[in-house]
Amino acid sequence: MAQFLEQIINGLVLGGIYALIAVGYTMVYGIIQLINFAHGEIFMFGAYIALMLITVFGIPFWIALPLSMVLCAILGMLIDLIAYRPLRNAPRLSALITAIGVSLALQNLARMIWSARDRQFPPEILPTVFQGQNAFLLPGGATLPYRDVFVILLALVLMIALNRLIHLTKIGKAMRACAQNPVAANLMGIKTNQVIAITFAIGSALGAIAGIMVGVSESVTPTMGYYKGVAAFAAAVLGGIGNVTGAMLGGIIIGVAEVFGAGYISSGYRLAIAYIIMIAVIIIRPSGLFGRSTGHRA
């Protein structure tokens, strides 16, 4: 029972991380129908930037965290400005190939700057909540590290905030309008490029904080964005790409499935089980759990 409870928590932590990354994929796709492969790299940069701010510049963790989010938001907007905006009216494939190129370039850039070695957040500079040994002891012998609680709550709060932002604010309304029909939105006076830039910024900031959360509990490597990014992308597809609520739920499902696959069946099937669930869902509902039926726009 304790084991089951711990596995659920492991799954929720991983799922929360995936959800935070997946919304970045899905928001961008929802508006410009582009699978932004570079998003995983922004996640990775988030972790590296925070690490550098802390270890090189000596900035306290709680300031480095939002600062890294801001810097990654700027990086996301910059990528859109340099690489994607010029291709806005080009065939979709061009933008997709560009996204892959940006992803490779950023990954190798990280390797050049920070080398391929695994890096760690030095434990002594981390706030108490992230020190892994600090944990609640649950009845039945299960341990619940503060950090896990923090990550789950953080994901939850950010998801709710994002949901409110999209549904209750003016910029959220503009984003939804652009997702429905960018041309019509533009005619109504919405500055589509600005809205797209803000979408990139929000997705990148969420990706960055996910990267930092992974960095403090695992390690920081140039390839971390690739592995987590692929799983998060699967989560976005599972939830129905373009749908933010779907991405959140998809992240949780993939995370829990991965942990249960590895914990109860075999680690060799770790991602296989998560992907089997994704494929099964796609077969039954081709547009994902929350996806709109296809063909809404030619």
Partner: peptide, 19 residues
């Protein structure tokens, strides 16, 4: 238990081992 070289998160298997 096994793990894959690319893994950075071993919580699932460690929880099984702990049990």
């Amino acid at each position: 238990e096994a793990y894959e070289r690319d893994s950075t998160n071993f919580k699932a298997q460690l929880t099984s081992i702990k049990a």
